[in-house]
């Protein structure tokens, strides 16, 4: 990606994130029962969304790699997986911080919590696996297969644990009667989703660039070795 468009992405992401922070802390009203702790919800759900979206991107580009057999797709898949892992980590941490004062516990084996943790474990092992394979093509093939199987599994994990037990608050938005957010909250939430997605797109573009730079360096080394 050319430098200019990368800088444009940076500016968009930075401005959106700054506005998001302003909205979360100042614009959005304080929730009546939970108080200020509820504000963590905006970043928590946004990170969860980005994490899941990023793994979806990994799934898509893993399949693209297996079809086209071009390493550039694998580069996008792994870059997205790393970012997804980062945001899933943020989701788990912010969720715990919220649960402690509200539920009185750091952790519970609820459907959404547990499937997020399993998602986190699967992609951690996906990245681990890549470390243990020398050949670049082999690495791409094997991890693409894990990327596809792992993502499919998340749905089954989710349903199996949902049957097993559930404590996570029901979806607040579009969750039937009695649900719903104050309009300011809704706006803040929507804005956070957009800002986090922009942040994701920017980090992804940078990660992909780094991957490409790695190949260039290898090429340079190779020509130096030849001489």
């Amino acid at each position: 990606m050319p430098r200019i468009s990368s800088n444009v992405l940076l500016i968009i992401a930075a401005v959106l994130m700054l506005i998001a922070i302003y909205m979360v802390f100042i614009y959005a009203p304080t929730e009546r029962t939970m108080g200020d702790i509820q504000r963590i919800f905006y970043f928590h759900v946004s990170s969860a969304w980005v994490g899941f979206f990023a793994f979806g991107v990994t799934f898509f580009y893993s399949a693209a790699f297996l079809k086209k057999k071009d390493l550039k797709w694998d580069n996008i898949a792994v870059s997205s997986a790393e970012i997804g892992l980062l945001f899933t980590t943020i989701t788990l941490i912010t969720g715990s911080l919220w649960a402690r004062p509200v539920w009185g516990i750091w952790w519970t084996w609820d459907a959404r919590l547990t499937s997020t943790l399993v998602l986190w474990l699967i992609y951690l092992s996906y990245l681990m696996l890549r470390n243990y394979i020398e050949s670049e093509t082999k690495r791409a093939y094997l991890s693409s297969v894990v990327g596809i199987i792992g993502f499919t599994n998340v749905f089954l994990v989710y349903f199996s644990i949902r049957w097993w037990r559930t404590q996570h608050p029901a979806p607040v938005i579009a969750g039937g009667s009695g649900s719903g957010l104050a309009p300011e909250m809704q706006l803040t939430f929507g804005f956070c989703l957009v800002a986090f997605t922009a942040l994701y797109v920017y980090i992804l573009s940078k990660k992909v660039e780094i991957g490409r730079a790695g190949w260039e360096i290898e090429d340079i080394y190779r020509t130096l070795d030849d001489k």
């Binding site: 696996l129 020398e134 349903f159 097993w164």
Partner: peptide
């Protein structure tokens, strides 16, 4: 196909079999 074969399989397999284990 990897180095550290013995470690990789449980790392991949255990989270994958969670639905099987629960059911």
């Amino acid at each position: 196909e990897t180095r550290m074969k013995v470690f990789i399989l449980p790392l991949l397999q255990l989270p994958m079999t969670i639905p099987v284990m629960i059911a």
